[in-house]
């Protein structure tokens, strides 16, 4: 316990009390032992609303130590509201070092992106998950979805993909694209773009998923097989961009569209701000600010 004799209310290290952390760590260990399985846990009220990453924050609070270096990203960016406030939260309640550099972080809490820079062994990626159940929109009953996971009845997941092709001519699911983990559990990778799905496969880093409102934790241990579901005649594909990042010229990365003016001007820039800044610092440059014709598929 930290015993600062200040006049403000005192929190335990990393906000949660030790018993709660113990409970969450148990859930995390179980999740790691059964890759892709959703472990129920007694999610706590956090000083932020549901939907702002209460699940991810609880997971991070349970695994963070004084020596950790924390990076928080929101849609790939280090400087948007969600990222800034969660980073400030842990600076305040855990007094940990923070960074925006992917390579220097030991824990990366993320909302909807996996950094472009490949993660290393020893790093932990913590996802904020809104709806952990991939089968939810097709089967509303929790009792039934649990049974389907237990009995490995995943035909329904393909019904969704079938429906996509029937309606759009291709698999139109672009985010929260269902994956099968280690050949067993079908898992929702949280609303990350499907562009990031291949990065989960055989990742050197530990990936933890926390859903605060739905009270579930799941995990992908390092070097685990993660396969995106598809059809033989409609194989899984990631989004492609027909032009590089306008700022750093990076290709083969996930781009965000930025509207420049009222006349239809727009540009496409890296969604991962750290990656983009690093490349610019290394002297790479793109056609800055030029209105692009690029299309997000």
């Amino acid at each position: 316990m930290n015993a600062h004799a200040e006049n403000i209310a005192q929190y335990n290290f990393a906000y949660l009390d030790e018993q709660t952390k113990r409970m969450i760590r148990r859930a995390i260990l179980k999740a790691i032992a059964i890759p892709g399985y959703q472990v129920p846990f007694a999610s706590r009220e956090m000083p932020m609303p549901y939907g702002w990453g209460t699940g991810g924050v609880q997971v991070t609070a349970s695994i963070i130590g004084p020596d950790d270096v924390l990076k928080v990203i929101d849609q790939g960016s280090d400087d948007t509201t969600n990222a800034v406030s969660i980073r400030a939260f842990f600076q305040k309640v855990a007094e940990v070092a923070v960074t925006t550099e992917t390579g220097k972080a030991s824990i990366i809490q993320t909302r909807h992106r996996i950094p472009e820079e490949p993660l290393k062994a020893g790093q932990v990626l913590v996802y904020q998950v809104p709806i952990p159940e991939p089968l939810r929109f097709l089967e509303p009953r929790e009792t039934e979805t649990r049974k389907m996971h237990a009995l490995e009845e995943y035909g329904l997941m393909h019904v969704k993909l079938y429906e996509d092709i029937a309606q759009h001519g291709h698999i139109a699911t672009t985010y929260a694209y269902p994956v099968k983990v280690e050949g067993r559990y079908v898992m929702d990778p949280s609303p990350t773009p499907k562009f990031d799905n291949p990065k989960m496969h055989m990742s050197a880093a530990l990936q933890l998923f926390g859903a605060g409102r739905e009270k579930r934790i799941y995990a992908i241990p390092p070097y685990t097989r993660v396969e995106s579901l598809d059809f033989e005649d409609h194989p899984f594909e990631v989004q492609t961009f027909d032009q590089p990042c306008a700022l750093c010229g990076g290709a083969g990365v996930y781009l965000d569209e930025v509207v420049l003016d009222d006349a239809g001007g727009r540009m496409f820039v890296c969604s991962d701000t750290d990656y983009c800044e690093k490349r610019q610092a290394e002297g790479h440059a793109g056609p800055t600010g030029s209105p692009g014709e690029g299309e997000v598929q």
């Binding site: 097709l138 035909g155 329904l156 393909h158 969704k160 079938y162 309606q167």
Partner: peptide, 14 residues
């Protein structure tokens, strides 16, 4: 879901 997916569900389950 569409009629096709309704009929195909059992096939996909198998």
């Amino acid at each position: 879901v569409s009629a096709g997916a309704n009929v195909g569900e059992r096939l996909m389950a198998l």
